[in-house]
Nucleic acid binder design. Structure first.
Lengths: 357, 357
DNA sequence: CTTTAGCACTCCGACTTTCTGAGTGCTAAG
DNA sequence: CTTAGCACTCAGAAAGTCGGAGTGCTAAAG
């Protein structure tokens, strides 16, 4: 059943007040916050109704109301007013995104810190490429025992490795290898680098010292790790929040976040609009049941998708966080050559698991 | 005045018991822990003496004793028994140090995590090079608008950058630039890259497009950042400790640690043996007055020195931590081609500011 | 049927009081 | 110098007290 306008107004007031104060909200507070033309008794009746419908709950009888996950959900989906970023905020973000020419990792790192700074919540960055392939291989001969492998991957990521070997080889060998790798290893993905391919390359180039497999090994390793990664910053910000007064709680969450596999699973979501909000129990992970996650995805070009998000208590200023992340993601899409973002902030669509209820 | 054997024994017992329990230690506990052949009253008399000498203190009358910084200092300098690492521990470290062929940064990152793992305290890694210079510059032409700069620095660090420019240039130009840079920019440090040098190079190569300054800019930037860096991991481990039951305290310390300039200042110590222990107020930084820092330095070759350390409460198992860090540092020295470590664990010398008293 | 004033009731959290016991310092005798 | 004995201290736990914010209900009014 659709809620009446008044109930929505009341729900919104409760949510927003609770976001501000972190304390259960009473009928009088709601009255003054909404400015509704009725008495607190009427509000109380409405609160009972919202309670029954599962949007609010009481920590205990005779306490004020606190939103449930369902309440937050409705708030986020329908009640939340879009928060316009201030000029200062957009400028700060634009400045922070002036990162032309940095590597992707460095960018994500910087942007993660920026998101933490802006929201004062821990920020996470995740990137995942559908398929990474080698665009170019270059070998730089240093001395008879060492050379550098330089790898250009899709997504314009450059990786390198200095190789020292206990036996010597000539510059010519390295040059030849370089040419061979460029002709037979470009455009292929990790799985395509089979032992057979390596063996045939070895034969083709007449390599008896195993140089080929050293290089191929680096390719495989690099392609594997370049597929995606995840990072968190600003975990300590949790400690400022009243919901983490108990260090044990904070510790558990931080631990969970420090495992990048856990983070990667956050991004494993088939449908993904522009901004996604996962509220409390909507999170699959047990460790996040009391927290909310806001994620914004961006296009990093070359079939790469990235996600930037924050983690915080369910009592979170969703509209501000979503707006900031959306704006950052949009900027990242532009920066990383993914062209325009999937959608601008103007069309901000917030998706999430709406099944609970 | 030198302490009597018995007092030393008692002091040691108090320190070690307190390290274990985090609770003030009473005379009876000392008795049972030392196994001394006297009564608790005698111990009490001794405790009063140690108290007067400033090695111990009481949180309040009628509580047990807690070591002071001075007490810890004496313990660390004289009383502490060297902790032999177990076979498991040395093996774990050796395994963790099997990082041949990774870059220096990656190694430090991994080793930092290992140190956290082993000690369950936040670990920090700092590296500082006396002078970093360029050993080799290589430019890889990609297309008329882009090329890759590959930089080999002292310390065998390789850095790269993909450059996209809005105007086009030829492969020949890039090749020529590469040669010029290799002849005039190798072996020089950051400060030597003056505007004059750039200008003269520009003239020499006939570069009218500013390619030279793009590359020189990257050199400067890279040399500057390669000079040193600092990193922390495992900050969340603080939350498990009773001394950080108050999230506010943990937050302050973590914040302090997250600023790499703060960390760098930790390494700014003229004399530095193998392992250095800084206890509570011996730390210059206010934020560390209630904590202890244990640092081990290693030789990273090519005039680079690195430090690996942990931060924890003054109540810290110094002997275990020092032994582990010393062993790690030794391994790092070997790994990073600095040859043998400054000194092996066998000769473990612990230094620190012993002025307080 | 909705709103509202009034009121009894609940119950958290803050504050106070009491109690306990670990641990002390002191004294006086061995 | 050591030690038994003892009075004393004091933090922290446990129990008790209290105020007030906020509730739900009732009954009257709109």
């Amino acid at each position: 059943m659709e809620l009446s306008q008044r109930r929505k107004k009341i729900l919104r007031a409760v949510v927003e007040e609770y976001i501000d104060s972190a304390e259960p909200v009473g009928s009088k507070t709601v009255l003054s916050r909404t400015g509704l033309d009725c008495s607190s008794a009427t509000i109380r009746n409405e609160l009972v109704a919202l309670d029954k419908e599962g949007y609010l709950e009481q920590p205990h009888t005779s306490a004020g109301r606190v939103p449930t996950a369902k309440g937050y959900r409705l708030y986020v989906n329908e009640l939340m007013r879009e928060r316009e970023l201030t000029r200062d905020e957009t400028e700060a973000i634009n400045r922070g995104l002036d990162l032309h020419g940095r590597g992707h990792e460095k960018i994500m790192d910087t942007v993660g810190h920026m998101a933490t700074e802006l929201t004062s919540y821990p920020a996470l960055t995740i990137s995942a490429a559908a398929a990474v392939t080698v665009k170019r291989v270059e070998l730089i001969y240093l001395d008879p025992n060492s050379f550098i492998i330089v790898l250009l991957l899709t997504g314009d990521t450059v990786k390198n490795k200095l190789v020292h070997l206990p036996f010597s080889f000539s510059q010519v060998t390295i040059t030849r290898l370089s040419a061979v790798f460029n002709s037979s290893f470009t455009g292929i993905s990790e799985e395509k680098i089979t032992p057979e391919l390596i063996a045939s390359t070895e034969r083709a180039v007449g390599d008896t010292m195993g140089l080929t497999s050293v290089i191929a090994g680096f390719l495989i390793e690099t392609l594997a790790t370049a597929k995606g990664g995840a990072n968190v910053s600003g975990e300590a910000n949790l400690l400022k929040l009243p919901e983490f007064r108990d260090p044990e709680k904070a510790h558990k969450l931080i631990n969970y976040l420090s495992n990048s596999e856990n983070l990667a699973s956050l991004s494993a979501s088939p449908d993904f609009g522009d901004v996604k909000v996962l509220i409390g129990p909507e999170n699959a992970a047990l460790e996040l049941k009391d927290s909310s996650v806001v994620l914004a995805s961006y296009n990093a070009g070359d079939n790469m998708r990235g996600i930037i998000g924050v983690v915080g208590p369910t009592r979170m200023d969703y509209s501000a966080v979503a707006a900031k992340l959306a704006y950052i993601a949009e900027g990242l899409s532009k920066l990383l050559g993914g062209g325009a973002a999937t959608s601008g902030y103007g069309k901000l669509m917030i998706k999430g698991d709406d099944s609970d209820g």
